[in-house]
Amino acid sequence: MQDDNHWVTRAKSGNQRAFKVLYDENVTPLYRFLKQFSRGDEEVHEWVQRAFIKAFEHIDSFDHRSKFSSWLFRLAINEMKMDRRREHIVRFESLEALGDVADSEEPSFEWHHTMKSWMGELDDTKRMVFILYEVEGYSHAEIASVIGIAESSSRTLLTRAKRILQDHWNKEMKQ
């Protein structure tokens, strides 16, 4: 099985079949991630297609220092943010408010499927950090690069997201 770098190199020379392989390998993770931020399937289709078209157009600028999937996620998130700004729907937490100091206390956290229904209470940035770290397995450094925030901000946002979900879970348990 060839890795992404092999197919990216071939796609750089204009090989559309190699690009199709990259599409097949990355479309599902990207789609289901974006689905968590959309209001419908059409919107996700749009973001996915725009992200892949951008990737094809700018594949020469991909320097192989990160994973292709990370680069693709970054392109997709940029598309999503652009739409949100255009629609004046700002659901991203102000990063200035976070400061540079990360929340030091890591809450004890365990995922329960019920928590999915509370994800909507997290703003987009917290939700992104939570999914990328907890579900997709990205490191804080990778998340920082994908979303365009500081690594310390990624840690802080993750801690806060977990706390919100855990608090909801604790209340639910008490009832």
């Binding site: 789609y31 289901r32 399937d41 289709h45 094809f56």
Partner: peptide, 16 residues
């Protein structure tokens, strides 16, 4: 949350 086969093909046609 995952795209079906038709959705995947449709998006690829759009990209193509």
């Amino acid at each position: 949350d995952s795209p079906g086969r038709r959705a995947r093909s449709g998006m690829w046609r759009g990209i193509q």
